[in-house]
Design a protein around this nucleic acid. Structure first.
Lengths: 188, 188
DNA sequence: GCCGTTGCATAACTGGCGTTACCTATTATA
DNA sequence: TATAATAGGTAACGCCAGTTATGCAACGGC
């Protein structure tokens, strides 16, 4: 008996993500979102309890988009898997500055960047590549990740404007340098 | 003939800085500042044209505080000068998270972090320490600074919680590793 | 084709923001 | 001591958030 919904949750989330992309988190207001959708604010509050819930949906969508960046660089095969994860992170920072800031440059006590579950696959990968102990491999990853995050966050805030080619070279150099430092000049 | 001012510009700026420290830039509102000072909003607008001007004063004060962190670590002599600048940057991020975010984690197209004039003293210092060409020394500094900024920003957002002792060790290792990479195993 | 259900648009309400008009209070000078 | 000049407090204004009450309109079962 009721009329059909004018929009789905996904359509609203997608418009909200776009708005955040263009105007940052502060640009995501109920009225702006309604205008972007071409409707009043009512449909939004029909499908979401509050704007806070919309922001939550945007966060999830952004996270998913980030994972698609990772997956793309992994699948391309242009880089070895571990490097691809760093390249994807930085490419995301480069092409989605606002979303990167939202995901990786806010206070989030606890969870380290690109948290937990991925560690379980990355750390053994490093152990295999370098022959380091688990403890050393974790430290190796943390230090390299600090460097990757440094590049990404500086690109996201426009302190830096490197092409991905440049990033690739620097990342390889950093990886080799770190390996030399951790493994004492070990080879491949 | 007019009554005396209840507050000076500096007193207001200092209260505004405190407020920003505790509640971030969004916590700095005219009413909150007035309450912190124990007065109405009028004295603020008597000495500042607008809240925007207050924010500008806070930015300057924060920058000055940052410089005092640098100066302190330089003067202490605990570290060589180049390292002290990195340690000061990170200590500032650790002890003044909100101010660090304000100064070094916002969009600022153009100016690189801890901009221009300091370069004129830092780059020659690196050239002297490492024997690198100016171009190489600039690249050396940029890469090391990316690492320093990575640590600092991760501490400021609570992704990381390293003691300064830990930072010191990691920074020295990173410096040595980078030097080995740039100078091809050169010594001191 | 009618009806109840319920999504929609309009337009309001609440509350916090920066800013300001108005009046009172204060102070150095004559 | 009286006065002119002006800082301060109060309370309002306009604006823009999020949210919601109201009336209208669309839809599926009868």
């Amino acid at each position: 008996m009721p009329p059909k919904f004018k929009f789905t949750r996904d359509e609203i989330t997608s418009a909200a993500l776009d708005l955040t992309r263009k105007a940052g988190p502060d640009g995501l207001t109920a009225r702006a979102l309604a205008e972007a959708l071409g409707c009043s604010v009512k449909p939004i509050f029909g499908l979401f309890k509050s704007m806070e819930e919309v922001q939550g949906a945007v966060l999830s969508a952004a996270r998913e988009l980030y994972l698609s960046f990772l997956a793309e660089d992994m699948a391309a095969g242009k880089y070895p898997p571990y490097k691809a994860s760093g390249m994807g992170y930085i490419r995301f920072a480069r092409e989605e500055k606002e979303l990167f800031k939202l995901l990786f440059m806010c206070d989030r006590k606890g969870e380290p960047p690109e948290a937990g579950k991925e560690m379980d696959v990355i750390i053994p990968l490093i152990m295999k590549n370098t022959g380091l102990s688990r403890e050393k491999a974790e430290r190796f990853h943390l230090e390299l990740w600090i460097f990757v995050h440094g590049i990404a966050s500086m690109i996201a805030t426009s302190y830096l404007d490197w092409e991905m080619e440049t990033v690739s070279g620097v990342l390889t150099d950093a990886y080799m340098g770190l390996k030399a430092r951790f493994c004492g000049e070990a080879g491949e």
